[in-house]
Nucleic acid binder design. Structure first.
Lengths: 231, 231
DNA sequence: ACAAAAGTGTTAATCTTACACCCATGT
DNA sequence: ACATGGGTGTAAGATTAACACTTTTGT
């Protein structure tokens, strides 16, 4: 095309994981460039013959060696002309969730290091406008939690009800009535009791539950809306 | 930057207006190129030194001579590599609303013609993947209507309650209980009665109402959530 | 026996739904 | 007087919110 445009297109992924009862985010320490040694979101330039999602998956794999559980486009950051010191770059940001069982990471070419940070302990200064992007993603997660069953994508396939409860209270930063929460969540019919028990240090043994995604999709077809709120 | 990337960045705007009791969308007849004479959304390439929103406003002004009332980023379309026959182009799509009082249009350089189409009578074949983008935007409008007071951006500053009612039923394609709708809408305290009357052909004269945006913003600060649903 | 977390019901208050008649104007 | 759309209240049903004690296990 003869058009003389000099704008570059990147993708960035905000990957959330829930481990040790805390929300974590995946960051990469920059290996080269002006921002060397700063922490940044996983991301990079899109190839000419590659779709945006493919680019995200590629970067996630190359830079951190992970496959995500949930991925959706978040927002395209392209209003600040100087958001990248190397030139005009717009970033299509994606929001991703991984379930905490395998948080294995392998550092690779583009990254000196990849690590999970608790959301309340990310480095003060992130590269580019990534602090801003992260804030946006965190808000999206919070609101999404109430009207889409994304919490399950952060938990292992089998989980304790108390873990689910705790995930909600931690991420939303709100207290919750255990009885009402359980009643409401079970009333949807998308969370099922297994007959296994989780292993815990103390207290009464607790059953493991699973999320029935097929059932959920089926209900959605018929106009079901997931919604979980509490004062 | 030495990076050799050959991806172009465009913006497109889906502009909705509500006139004559119907939802309309703004389209432009292509003047040049392979898609000459096809109808398309307002849009074009982003300049190197221009933010994305600025690009949208510029295109809206250049191609249709309008200023919009509400604008938000919708989605970035960049997965189909062949969505634009001219090369690899990703489009950051914006969702816009204009209030129906002034739907003046002036055609200009990039467009042979600009016109409003009723949403249920858009041309069968739109340029690029614009039919798809339009569908996405239409869904966004429908869902947004229920949890954000965007309906007011489609109406004149002073409007009849029946117009508001009608806007909801038309756009959502649902029936509605007039009494319950009015009660709920008024209960928020963001719609105010003026002491003027609208002019109508027949029936009892009806008061004009206004949307108090300041009040709404104030309420939102304090955690208010607009929500309007009906079976 | 005690510490720790799991599991479980009821009631009051609020919100939602369904429903129909009178009112003010123009013709 | 009649046609047209505007304006209004109430009661039943559904949902949400508030609240505390018993159970099962490990130590």
């Amino acid at each position: 095309m003869e058009l003389n445009q000099n704008i570059h297109v990147a993708v960035d992924a905000i990957v959330f994981g829930y481990t040790a009862g805390k929300l974590h985010v995946l960051l990469i320490k920059q290996k080269y460039g002006l921002l060397k040694n700063k922490w940044a979101l996983v991301g990079g330039f899109v190839k000419d013959d590659e779709s945006l999602v493919d680019a995200v998956h590629r970067e996630l794999y190359e830079e951190a060696g992970i496959r995500v559980n949930y991925l959706e486009q978040l927002y395209t950051f392209g209003d600040a002309l100087d958001r990248d010191p190397r030139g005009r770059v717009i970033s299509v940001a994606y929001f991703a969730l991984v379930n905490s069982t395998t948080l294995e990471l392998k550092a690779d070419t583009d990254a000196e290091d990849a690590a999970w940070f608790p959301i309340d302990a990310v480095p003060d200064e992130l590269a580019f406008d990534h602090a801003h992007i992260l804030r946006t993603a965190h808000q999206r997660l919070q609101s999404k939690l109430t009207y889409q069953p994304v919490g399950f994508d952060l938990l292992p396939e089998r989980f304790l009800f108390s873990e689910l409860e705790h995930l909600y209270t931690t991420i939303l930063g709100k207290e919750i009535d255990r009885r009402n929460f359980r009643k409401k969540m079970l009333s949807f019919g998308i969370v099922e009791e297994t007959n296994e028990f989780g292993d815990k240090k103390s207290g009464r043994p607790a059953k493991l539950f699973t999320f029935n995604k097929l059932k959920y999709n089926e209900l959605v077809e018929n106009g079901f809306l997931f919604e979980i709120n509490f004062a």
